[in-house]
Design a protein around this nucleic acid. Structure first.
Lengths: 204, 204, 204, 204
DNA sequence: TATGAATGAGAATTCATTCAT
DNA sequence: TATGAATGAATTCTCATTCAT
């Protein structure tokens, strides 16, 4: 259909793969993971559906890849934040900002991540749940350091991380569930407020 | 809500319907909503699958009913909590306790609620999302009163409710995702700590 | 399509199953095992293809069932022949007659058996090959008794059985491969001649 | 037969084609004709699958070529045996030996020939069935001469050939079906015994 | 020659739902 | 009420074949 595309040069390796992945995110966002048909993804990407199987084992592999792209990226950001030094207050802000920025930059991906992937059946597999724990783990390590340094009162870092992650995720969920377009402006304010409540809650 | 069937054998009828509903919760818990086949539910309930259609319009109606049973019940509890007077600190504790108790009493239902229903496609329909907002709304009204009375500092009640609800839900999620049986003992402690962080965060 | 059929009474249990099985034999005969589509079988049987899956797990199960029906029947006949007493000469005649009669009575089934099943990939599984060995085994036991009683010269019964079985099967194969209708008349004569050559070959 | 390709690199070309053909035999032997995918053959041969189409029109052409290589070779051997003079007893031995030797030299090809090709759908086409008749025909002509010369009793040569061919093929089938490696030693003995039974059966 | 991305027809299989009994 | 045979739309996945490079 889209004759314009690059059937000429498979130049950048993975160009096609990338576009299929993007299309999948799009379809997930529109119809949900379980409403996502390979045919839809292929049409969205402008390729024959056989090609999807050229790049991905099957539907599940496709979902897994989308997950890795989106959540994996987020986890790596958290990892980076946790890896660099700095006062806890600032680190917590960085964590929240990372999440809200990601939403601002690519709301569709975050919508899919939050609504479709995080609690979906793919998380039934231990391997994937681990990624979830990992995210919380990075936040926990930030908090642990804060407690050790006396920047925070003596809380259970893992529990604190869970609470922060939950508060952020739920805030994003309500944003994501709201009519698209609404509340765009309040993003930064919302982020600040969540951080504010949390930091006061764990302050010495 | 559910058009109670003919009054001939009130008990019997309700029993059958009830057992199918319980079976559905069981199957949702085991295989997830999208892995749930009518045939599975019928087998689990020990009835012919044709009978499921006697009590429920279709699959979606079945899911909606499960939702009604579990989340509806929870929302009504929140509503009751919000409706009665009392210091905010106690009310917030009641909210958290309601959630953690529900988990303790019927973990399977909560697992389904948390993992399958809250973010599932049924929530794509405005009608259902409303129930979600409703839950947060009840909590918000508790907080609003607290702010008005000066029991809490001046926060946005809706945002505060979102943060609390998110923290609780994420705590339950990690519990639910953890190996079954683990951490059962720490439920009360966990509940207290989440409440503690939140209350400090919003204290005057 | 065929509204005339018995959707009224599932009276004789397996009536439908039986007709699907017959249809499968028909389609195997016409298009070969690998050319056999479930849709073809269903159309031939005059049922929806979903029904095929009601009675059979999958295509392979269907084939296996056809095999059991046809070859199983033949093996049981050989078993019966081997189980009853009588002079070897007569027993060998009975074996050959059983095969040629089966062909005369239901050439289509035998065609499928000989051309499609005996050497098909289903025989790659040990379980099925065993049925093959079993058939030869029954013939071998007939010959063994003959050797023991001095009715035959001292040959290896298993090898003898293999030779006889092979000669019969190849004779049927050439019949089956010939234009349908041809040679019908010579069946009895052919049978006698094969038996004749074999019996002379193993006579004392 | 096979339209030898351009004479530029006679050896190279033939080598490639040859290796693809060998790979095909290998895959047929392992997975059966219908389980044989062009991609499998290409991988086995260590070439890109597009190249297969350089040397063969399509899958069927590939199969036909494999057939040509294996069965064609065998038929030509039978033809040669039938064409040279000699006592029938010796000729029959030559026929059987040709088959058993072929098996000893290249069991995989014979396995494919016996299990995959002889009864496969390609034989549904008259053109190919002819090759089958041809093999039996060569044997029949040997027997006919034997009858004419009074070396054999008055049997129908075609029927006799069918019986001999069937006995040999079934003996090979049981060998081929047996666990690989077993009975290798008894090949010559088996061959002799089959010939022995047959020759006595047709002796004057 | 050689490669492998791209295509799409075709087949198996699933499962919600209906309905005669 | 209760059963489960029957239906068929919908979907996934496979694989031969083409073709630009």
């Amino acid at each position: 259909m889209q004759e314009a595309s690059s059937r000429t040069h498979p130049r950048r390796d993975g160009e096609r793969r990338e576009s299929i992945l993007r299309a999948a995110v799009h379809v997930f966002a529109k119809k949900g993971y379980h409403g996502c048909r390979i045919a839809d993804v292929a049409r969205e990407a402008g390729v024959a559906y056989g090609l999807v199987y050229h790049y991905f084992q099957n539907t599940e592999d496709l979902l897994r890849s989308v997950f890795e792209e989106s959540f994996g990226h987020f986890v790596r950001m958290l990892e980076a934040i946790a890896a660099t030094e700095g006062p806890v207050v600032q680190k917590v802000e960085e964590v929240a900002t990372a999440a809200f920025d990601a939403y601002q930059n690519d709301p569709e991906s975050i919508r899919v991540l939050v609504l479709e992937i995080l609690r979906s059946p793919v998380f039934r597999e231990a391997e994937q749940r681990q990624a979830f724990q990992e995210a919380i783990g990075h936040i926990a390590s930030v908090l642990r350091r804060g407690v050790e340094r006396g920047e925070l009162r003596s809380i259970d870092p893992f529990l604190g991380a869970t609470a922060l992650f939950g508060a952020i995720e739920m805030a994003l969920t309500t944003l994501v569930m709201a009519t698209p377009g609404a509340d765009r402006l309040h993003l930064d304010a919302t982020c600040q407020r969540v951080v504010d409540i949390f930091l006061r809650g764990v302050a010495v």
